[in-house]
Design a protein around this nucleic acid. Structure first.
Length: 137
DNA sequence: GCCAACGTTGGC
DNA sequence: GCCAACGTTGGC
C-alpha cells in the first residue's frame, strides 16, 4: 500500500473542483518522475491533495479509482493519466510552513523535491499529516 | 556526451 | 515581482 501526494494550482484545478466533479482524470503530467509515480498507483490508494501558489497547503484527501493508462491529451511521447476521486476535506489544511516545521515531515519530497507534482508519501508521514490536520485549532 | 541557454514551477 | 531549482533543448 502506497500513499501519494498530488499538487495543483487552485486556479487551474482546485480541490473544490474535485469535490464538485466527484472524480477527474489527472492529465497533462509531462515529467518522467511524476509519470513513473502515477504508474505505481493502485486502485484504492489514498492521495493527499496539495494546493500550490498563494496559500501552499495540503487541503484534502482523494483516492485512486483508475490506474495509469494512456493520456489521450498527449500528442507526442509516452504519457499516462490516472483517475482520482474526491474523498474528503482535511479537517484543517496543513500549510507548507507547518510541514517544514514538523521534524517528522521535513524529509518529505514536498520539502526536498518541491517541484515534483506527483510524490510518494510514507505511511508515517501520511498519518502524521492527518493527525496534525485533526488536532489543529 | 557535455554544457549553456532557456522555460517552467513554485515559494517567498 | 523576484529568484532558486530543476528539466529540457540544441549546438558543438
Amino acid at each position: 500500500m502506497n500513499y501519494w501526494l498530488i499538487k495543483s494550482e487552485p486556479n487551474t484545478y482546485s480541490f473544490e473542483n474535485l469535490r464538485k466533479d466527484k472524480k477527474t482524470h489527472w492529465d497533462g503530467v509531462r515529467n518522467y518522475q511524476a509519470r513513473n509515480n502515477m504508474r505505481k498507483m493502485k486502485k484504492g490508494e489514498p492521495v493527499l491533495f496539495y494546493h500550490s501558489g498563494k496559500e501552499p497547503a495540503l487541503i484534502g484527501l482523494a483516492q485512486v479509482v483508475k490506474e495509469a493508462h494512456h493520456d489521450f491529451t498527449a500528442t507526442a511521447g509516452d504519457w499516462d493519466i490516472v483517475e482520482i476521486a474526491y474523498k474528503k476535506s482535511l479537517k484543517h489544511p496543513v500549510k507548507l510552513s507547518k510541514v517544514k516545521a514538523v521534524q517528522k515531515l521535513a524529509k518529505m519530497q514536498l520539502v526536498t523535491h518541491s517541484r515534483l507534482s506527483v510524490q510518494v508519501v510514507k505511511k508515517s508521514e501520511f498519518d502524521e499529516i492527518l493527525k496534525i490536520s485533526h488536532n489543529q485549532a
